[in-house]
């Protein structure tokens, strides 16, 4: 019996399936960017609220912890009957998880601002709102950027779980490759996924350096 070659790496596969690959990569990228952006817009005010009203922080962070324990498969499965099979369900799930990561990191960043800095600002006559916007947020920027990077990389990986509802970007190709026992398809999708995560992380790293010029000489993280 002749067994057809089934290599894990095949340039031939990439050339012949360029259309599918680009479509999956595009789906994956847009989902990730959209999810992180939406999550950030929601997370920033939530974190600011948790920071300025410490009594709200504990229940907020606790709720986030409980939500984070719920696995993505279960979340997608619980959402699917209501939001349908497709993009919306995946997006809601991704936003939820990115939101949890972001809120936690932003709160940590805001709380980590040195007390002397805060005192100095208050001494200069800054009210709570101005203190938050002009002093605490800029000081927390490195932590916020770190949070966004973490959320983005996790979201790239998590998007593949979208296969649960048939909309998993590159995960869809992995699944198709699994079902047809096509090794090249699985590994190509995996490598693209890793490359996307790396590319997003690099872009955010550079962007982070650009918006925090003062930290360029100081720290390495």
């Amino acid at each position: 019996m002749h067994v057809a070659a089934n290599p894990w790496l095949s340039w031939d596969y990439v050339v012949r399936n360029r259309g599918d690959l680009t479509r999956a990569l595009e789906q994956h990228t847009t989902l990730t960017i959209q999810a992180v952006l939406i999550a950030f817009v929601i997370a920033l005010p939530l974190a600011a609220l948790a920071h300025t009203r410490p009594r709200l922080a504990a229940p907020l962070v606790g709720l986030a912890g409980v939500l984070y324990t719920v696995p993505s498969v279960a979340l997608f499965a619980m959402l699917a009957p209501f939001t349908g099979i497709g993009r919306t369900t995946v997006l809601i799930g991704l936003v939820t998880y990115a939101l949890l990561v972001l809120v936690r990191n932003i709160v940590v960043g805001l709380d980590g601002v040195a007390e002397e800095v805060r005192d100095a600002a208050r001494g200069l006559g800054y009210g709570p709102a101005r203190l938050l916007l002009r002093v605490e947020l800029p000081n927390a920027l490195p932590a916020i950027v770190a949070g966004v990077r973490l959320a983005t990389v996790s979201t790239v990986a998590l998007t593949t779980v979208g296969v649960v509802v048939g909309y998993g970007g590159l995960g869809q190709l992995m699944f198709r490759g699994f079902r047809s026992r096509y090794h090249a398809e699985i590994l190509t999708a995996t490598l693209l996924c890793l490359a996307l995560a790396l590319a997003c992380d690099l872009v955010l790293y550079v962007a982070g350096r650009l918006i925090t010029p003062w930290s360029r000489s100081a720290q390495t993280t």
Partner: peptide, 19 residues
């Protein structure tokens, strides 16, 4: 830790399951 964060679990599952 960083690699395991970027590598999708689903990718490794499909790789092992079809390997």
């Amino acid at each position: 830790a960083n690699t395991s964060r970027a590598l999708p679990t689903f990718a490794l599952l499909t790789i092992f399951a079809s390997g």
